[in-house]
Design a protein around this nucleic acid. Sequence first.
DNA 1: ACCCCTGTTCGGCG
DNA 2: CCGCCGAACAGGGG
Length: 264
Amino acid sequence: MPELAEVEFYRKQWNAGLDAKVLAVKLHAAKRIFRGSDPREIRRRLTSARLLRSTARGKQMLFEFSGGNWLGLHLGMSGTLRTETPKFRPGKHDHLVLRQTKQTLVFRDPRLFGRVKFQHGKLAPEWWTAAPPEISAKEFNAAHVADFLRRHGRAPIKAVLLMQSGFPGIGNWMADEILWRAKIVPLTAAGALTAAQRARLFRETQFVASESLRIVSPEFGDLPDDWLIHQKWKRDGVCPRHGSPLRKAMIGGRTTAWCPRCQK
DNA sequence: ACCCCTGTTCGGCG
DNA sequence: CCGCCGAACAGGGG
């Protein structure tokens, strides 16, 4: 489920716990989301630590706790963050639960494609600081994008938009939305785009990212009716521009929808 | 029952 | 070594 804007929405759900101490940590240590981290260390270090701040980059989130404790969360396909009352009893899929005086912070993930990372130390973890430039960053400019497209020139542009090292936060629906707005066929090799197509791709990437953040991130608001996302999963979905039927195919391993009339 | 899935990683292959 | 593809991961929803 979560792409850029939803990740930002879920990150803010834990804002209720800022500046408050963690009284107790409950976790399902054997679950896959803890692959690559030590759940017992997480429980030990976060107990009595205060939540200081958090940030999101693409689909990654970082929560900083007092004492040099850094918790990285990735929501995978089905992860969510929410708060519950202090007495909350974790359910089957509530794999990481931080109890505080006034609320409980909950990470739920039924499908277990998400991931919990943890580092103890003075500085933010290397896997965080080494992250590629975000779409909203100044370094994410036309030249940067052109360079990335050239390095993956043989892959279909749809698959390249899904690469987090180049387009942090873009997922399946945003990629289709961008290509539809930019009027580019998803199967086009990234290296074969014309200069005009690259310019449109860059502009619409920024537009879709900033608009979805503006609408979804604060209140999980609905995206405008004329966005492709509302048509893409319908069996008889049509192009929001002129109502002609969408085409569907598997590209880059994901179901892709596009309008053959306006995407050339 | 059966098929689908808004993500990532890994092994195989060219 | 690089890049691309399909499979695998797990569970819920249509």
